[in-house]
């Protein structure tokens, strides 16, 4: 718990973080930036879980445990995404979204 800061402030911050991530995912033109946006979304939920656990239900550790698992899985997800991006980069020499549009509609 942080003195002087209630759960409302923290949840506001995480919500803003979440929607920045969604906005970034939709508008970014670079595959790596899209990946970073996804990290923002995942980290918003990590903070959410920890804060909710700490402020509302401190008797159990469900939220904190969940947060640890999310961090681990997010690392795996990023590793896989980066490796696919590298494989794509070897073929087209670019990580821009507009170059990956051979299939449409």
């Amino acid at each position: 718990m942080i003195t002087g800061i209630s759960i409302y402030e923290i949840l506001t911050v995480t919500s803003i973080l979440f929607f920045i991530g969604v906005y970034g995912f939709i508008t970014r033109k670079n595959l790596i930036s899209i990946l970073i946006s996804i990290e923002l979304i995942l980290n918003a939920s990590v903070v959410n879980f920890v804060v909710i656990n700490k402020y509302l239900y401190p008797e159990n550790l469900e939220g904190v445990l969940f947060a640890i698992f999310i961090i681990a899985v997010a690392a795996a997800e990023t590793a896989l995404a980066v490796s696919i991006i590298i494989s794509l980069y070897r073929q087209i020499g670019s990580v821009e979204v507009k170059d990956t549009e051979t299939m449409k509609y």
Partner: peptide
């Protein structure tokens, strides 16, 4: 090339989907 493109489209959509799911689960929690 098409296969890599399919892979990147799938992993990015899936990652976004799981992120949204997680945020929803945290609110349900």
């Amino acid at each position: 090339r098409k296969s890599s493109e399919a892979g990147i489209k799938l992993i990015l959509s899936a990652a976004l989907a799981s992120g949204i799911t997680l945020f929803g689960i945290s609110l349900l929690y």
